[in-house]
Design a protein around this nucleic acid. Structure first.
Length: 598
RNA sequence: GCGCACAUAGCUCAGCUGGAUAGAGCACAAGCCUUCUAAGCUUGGGGUCGCAGGUUCAAGUCCUGCUGUGCGCGCCA
């Protein structure tokens, strides 16, 4: 290893204030152990430091006494008492209370929260960056829409989710690769090829009549047919199918993929890697994965039982090449080969996930449609098997999106096109609205996307509501610069403000919420749940709007003080912190904040 | 029939990997603009967390069994 390959460790101040005080608890416990007041060898991992449910309980609460009591051989309350004596020694702690079954509640100096503002302002958009991921490689595979048609809203949801999850994991310190798996092998792209060939003949003036069943009827293929005709003239018509099909198929795939990429980019989604299923298969990856499983003794020739209760008409028992998925938690063993000897999709997918593992990804995430639910266990089984238990796969299933306009379901009138295309939605409401709204629901809940609601300028519309909070911050800072000509309103300068002036309960409450951001990032990243970011932003926006309105009745809660510049600057520090945290959240969501509402 | 997911206020949904008296918006009721953007805010009523057990100091959260809904169920991807 060369000297320069050793990473330079930059000691960063941990901005997660809750982790910081959790450390105080751990240190205090270690002191107690050293003094012989606690047995050694206790497991501190379950100790949590969290915001209390109610503000009246104080600033922070820990469950340490309850978690350790049993192993320490004493009552939670007794342990809490002893621990609270130690905790009270920290100069930032104002008071320690023991409540309920053994909670320890801390009241902290206001300066803890006030100083947090300085941290926010100096970190800027990097506020909340965590080292939790420790540079661990994670592969997030998402979208992976078949290149057989344009993207629709369900794809868009997966795209936004996957992209936001990737950004979230990056923020949490993981080394993330964003990947798209192109299903360019198999029957569906053959149908695409044949369907495109029809359109090609149509473009050459042939009357193709109704599109027969078994072909894709979508009008989007007409354009590709025309391009094909321009490129090849009549020449393809003379060829036998085995010659024109690979050509037309390849052409159609690359055209469709280009269109999909265009849509993704206009939504701000960009993958690092596109992996072609066909290329993977041709590289021999499937044979390699298969051989590995064979070597492990996990492949056999066998006959599956028919599904109970629902036996297909044409069911007949037949020997197949099966993977022992049941050894890894799946319900039945799964076929790797079709009867004609070619690989099943599952076999290809094992090869693909094995390939990702070989590329260094022991942490893998697949973002799939909910209709793939039955597929999860077998893929997890396969990856566990082939990686000898070293790789983990988390599958995030995306529920449907229903598109509405003022409560009325929107359907494309064009035949067979029952889905609303992503392009339509983007043109109508814009990428930031799409991105935000797609994250306002957990991935496993269905989502209603209502054109009218998502563009409405009201409290009901979370995009508007949060954007408005950001714009309001910008507006006040602009006004401040006008009110005090020459005043430096940069974050760096505001970080020097006399934040000790911000002492009202309302302002402190807002500061506490802002200080939660690093904790939110870690929790959301850990759970692979980017929607939490959206909810957090809505809460920040609500708290900010509330404080703003209070300033109408109470002049001491305003942000601008025409006769008092230091007071103004202090409040601008709070305001700019709100702005910064909102910007951080928008950044994770991939949404561009607006500086002015029109 | 089997598997997976979901079930929280009238409606739409959160609930920070087991914490304290379960939250928010909408709707409903009553209020607030000579204000840095009222495109907003305040207060109030509203709950057997689908049902029944279990695990422990503690369960909306974990386990088991039911009920309902959605998705899937040998050579489609």
């Amino acid at each position: 290893m060369t000297r320069c390959s050793i990473p330079i460790l930059i000691q960063r101040y941990d901005m997660n204030i809750f982790n910081e005080f959790r450390e105080v608890v751990v240190k205090s416990l270690e002191v107690m152990v050293a003094a012989g007041n606690l047995p050694s060898g206790l497991d501190f991992s379950r100790i949590a430091m969290e915001p209390p449910r109610e503000a009246s309980h104080g600033d922070m609460a820990t469950n340490a006494a309850m978690v350790l009591a049993k192993a320490a051989g004493c009552k939670p309350v007794d342990l809490a008492r002893a621990l609270s004596v130690e905790l009270a020694k920290d100069e930032r702690v104002v008071s320690v209370d023991i409540a309920g079954p053994g909670f320890i509640n801390l009241k902290l100096q206001p300066s803890v929260w006030q100083n947090a503002l300085r941290g926010i302002l100096s970190e800027g958009v990097r506020y909340g960056d965590s080292t939790m991921g420790a540079g661990c490689h994670v592969n997030v595979e998402y979208v992976s829409a078949n290149p057989t048609g344009p993207m629709h809203t369900a794809h868009a949801r997966g795209a936004v989710f996957g992209d936001a999850l990737a950004r979230l994991l990056q923020k949490a310190g993981f080394d993330v690769t964003k990947e798209y798996y192109v299903n360019d092998a198999g029957r569906q792209v053959e149908i695409l090829g044949r369907s495109t060939f029809l359109r090609y003949k149509e473009a050459l003036g042939e009357d193709i009549g109704e599109i027969p069943p078994g072909f894709y009827p979508g009008e989007y293929l007409k354009e590709i047919g025309v391009k094909l005709a321009q490129a090849h003239g009549e020449s393809l018509k003379a060829l036998p199918e085995e010659e024109w099909l690979p050509l037309v198929r390849g052409f159609a795939i690359s055209e469709m993929l280009a269109e999909i990429k265009t849509d993704l980019i206009s939504m701000g989604v960009n993958h690092d890697v596109f992996t072609s299923e066909r290329a993977l298969v041709e590289s021999g990856a499937v044979e390699k994965a298969f051989a590995t499983l064979v070597e492990m003794g996990l492949v056999y020739e066998g006959v599956l039982e028919p599904p109970r209760g629902k036996t297909p008409e044409d069911w007949e028992p037949r020997p197949q090449t099966l993977f022992r998925a049941t050894q890894f938690g799946d319900d039945v063993d799964r076929p790797l080969k079709k009867s004609d000897g070619s690989w099943t999709y599952f076999a290809n997918d094992i090869a693909y996930h094995f390939d990702k593992y070989c590329r260094g990804f022991s942490e893998q995430i697949d973002v799939l449609g909910a209709d793939h639910g039955g597929y999860v266990k077998r893929m997890q089984s396969a990856l566990t098997a082939i990686s000898c238990g070293k790789a983990r796969l988390d599958v995030k299933l995306m529920q449907m999106v229903s598109t509405l306009d003022n409560g009325v379901p929107v359907r494309m009138s064009k035949r067979a096109g029952t889905f609303v295309t992503l392009r339509d939605v983007l043109d109508r409401v814009g990428r930031d609205v799409v991105r935000f709204i797609m994250l306002t629901r957990r991935n496993d809940q269905t989502l209603e996307f209502d054109y009218a609601k998502v563009t409405e300028q009201s409290r009901d519309n979370p995009v508007f509501y949060v954007q408005y909070a950001y714009a309001r911050c910008c507006s006040v800072i602009r006004n401040a610069a006008e009110m005090f000509p020459g005043l430096d309103v940069s974050a760096a300068e505001l970080a020097k403000a006399d934040v000790g002036r911000l002492g009202s309960e309302e302002e402190l409450a807002l500061m506490r919420q802002l200080a939660l951001w690093p904790r939110m990032v870690e929790a959301a990243a850990e759970a692979h749940e980017p929607h939490r970011i959206a909810y957090y932003l809505m809460e920040i926006a609500a708290a900010f709007h509330a404080l703003w309105t209070k300033g109408r009745e109470d002049a001491n809660l305003r942000f601008l003080y025409p006769d008092d510049m230091p007071q103004t600057v202090a409040h601008l520090a709070l305001l700019a912190s709100v702005q910064t945290v909102l910007a951080c959240g928008f950044d994770v969501m991939g949404v561009v904040p607006v500086e002015e509402m029109r």
